[in-house]
Design a protein around this nucleic acid. Sequence first.
DNA 1: CGCAAACTCATACTTAAGACTGAGACAAAA
DNA 2: TTTTGTCTCAGTCTTAAGTATGAGTTTGCG
Lengths: 208, 208
Amino acid sequence: MIRIVVVDDHDVVRKGVIAYLETEADFQVIGEASSGEEGVEVVLKQKPDVVLMDLIMENGNGIEATKRIKEVIPDCKVIVLTSYYDDKQIFPVLEAGAFSYLLKTASAEEIVSAIKKAHHGENVIEPKVAHKVMTRFQGKQATLHDQLTDRELEVLICLANGATNQEIADQLFIGIKTVKTHVSNILRKLEVHDRTQAAVYAHRHHLL
Amino acid sequence: MIRIVVVDDHDVVRKGVIAYLETEADFQVIGEASSGEEGVEVVLKQKPDVVLMDLIMENGNGIEATKRIKEVIPDCKVIVLTSYYDDKQIFPVLEAGAFSYLLKTASAEEIVSAIKKAHHGENVIEPKVAHKVMTRFQGKQATLHDQLTDRELEVLICLANGATNQEIADQLFIGIKTVKTHVSNILRKLEVHDRTQAAVYAHRHHLL
DNA sequence: CGCAAACTCATACTTAAGACTGAGACAAAA
DNA sequence: TTTTGTCTCAGTCTTAAGTATGAGTTTGCG
């Protein structure tokens, strides 16, 4: 039995979805809400297995609600439903902790399938945006240098141009001790052992 | 009056060229030869202004002859004539000291023109190969790193991968003292002040 | 056969690099 | 307000880096 909460501010949509979901033998809709805030309350009280979350609602959006739900009940699978196709939505949604991401143009069968898959630990990402996610991850595979602060990046650029600590200090109008601190932090974050390797890293990753 | 020597092992070609050249009022053919060695002898004795040199001959090629002529009489303009188009020929020919480079498919007027230009200090390079020469020089504009020896280049590659002196020593099976010597020489030749700048140089010039 | 260049190694010296620790100022976020 | 992160700087210590000089070996070239 899969316990479900449906969150959507359009009554007709919510009621319709619930009605359809309950035709499934092993589905049990144990709560519903018409706003993000109300959704969080219901979820925290009912502790469902799966949440169907509308992304765009009048009172508080689905992202904030998802974030708060995942903070308290990490095991809860939140399936985000979005009305229209938009590239930029997907990343904040995933960062918020959403488990699956579907368009409302998806058929009822697809939604049922997504719920079952979510319950078994399988993610469902709308094909149109799935490849966006992939390219994003391929292009950003755990880049070490995005740990660097702005200042550290500045220092690294200077360093990768062949500047000495003293020259970097003069360029950035700071003390050589400060530069040494930055360089040490850079080396640690980039997981290298000296400035030459850091310079090589910078060039290989086209940081200048 | 332009004093000329013609070197070509094909009698008919040589005689024909000479006959045509003498129709020019200010041309004076003061010698001829049918081999490279003989050509050198004649040239050294006659000291002509211009030499028409066939590139490919049975007894000794035109390159060696050109080289020896330029060693003794640097002011002598050697115009090399080659039977067929070949990219690889041009560079040894120029290195030997040839002043101009023409194909035998060139018209009689072109040859006459080339001789006059040579006498006035103007080079003539067959258009088909001229751009080869240009690209060669553009691509090899005084690269600092071509001063490096093979071993130094190996060391530079290691260095530009972020290796320490000790690591380079281990990789190349030599002592760290030797590595230091190489590195010092590399830094001097590349006109940089430390290994980081050397690594930057290597990456900017795509040496690895 | 010299001769020059390249590769090798050594000693001694100087200095920049880097690690480690600690700390004050400041701004944004919880 | 307290916390957290960033930027700043200081002191101390260890070691890698780099310079300068000299020299032995090999290799190729005239």
